[in-house]
Amino acid sequence: MTSSPSADHPLKAVAALLGGVLLVGGVSSLLHEWFGFIRFLGFLRFLVPDGHEILGGVVMACLGCALLAVAELLGGWGRR
């Protein structure tokens, strides 16, 4: 059974969605801590322990970038 060249990996959409949410949530968390506004995707604050908001925002943004890179890599497999 061969896949068509345009078929994407099934996890590409999941990795892209989760990576986008983590990236935007991490950046939003950092902006909120530094400037006191822009509380976007505030539900992600429950993932970070109290007192570690800046480190948590950096980690979420980095994980989001990594997941977006994985999604791009998974999308590239269908083109080979």
Rank of each mutant, 00 (worst) to 15 (best):
H9C: 00
M60H: 04
G56P: 08
F40Q: 05
G26D: 11
A7E: 13
V48T: 10
V48W: 01
R39S: 14
F46D: 15
G20P: 01
V24A: 15
L22E: 09
G57N: 05
M1Q: 08
G78F: 02
F35D: 04
D8F: 11
A15W: 08
A13I: 02
A61S: 14
R79Q: 12
L44E: 12
S3K: 13
F35V: 13
L17F: 14
G25L: 07
H52N: 07
R80I: 08
G78T: 00
A61N: 07
P49A: 05
S3M: 11
V14P: 00
H9G: 03
M60N: 10
R39I: 06
F37Y: 13
M60E: 15
L67N: 01
A16M: 11
G20A: 10
M1K: 06
H9V: 02
F35M: 11
L30K: 05
V59H: 03
A13V: 05
S29A: 11
F37A: 15
V24G: 02
R79W: 09
P5V: 07
K12P: 01
V21W: 15
R80P: 08
G19N: 07
L22T: 04
A13P: 00
L22S: 07
L30A: 06
G56S: 04
G57D: 06
V21E: 10
A61Q: 04
K12N: 06
L23V: 03
V70F: 06
P5H: 10
H52E: 12
F46N: 15
G78P: 01
L31D: 05
V58G: 01
L68Y: 00
L63M: 12
W77I: 07
V70M: 08
W77H: 06
S29E: 12
S3I: 10
R80N: 10
G51K: 01
L41V: 10
L18Q: 08
V21L: 15
S4Y: 12
L31S: 09
L31M: 13
V48G: 00
L55D: 07
P49C: 04
L73H: 10
A13L: 11
A15C: 13
G75N: 04
A13C: 00
L23W: 08
W34C: 04
A13D: 10
E33G: 06
S4H: 13
V27K: 04
V21D: 06
W77L: 10
M60W: 06
L68T: 02
F46G: 13
A16N: 13
G25W: 08
L41S: 04
L44R: 01
S3H: 14
E72A: 15
H32L: 09
V59N: 05
C65F: 14
S6N: 11
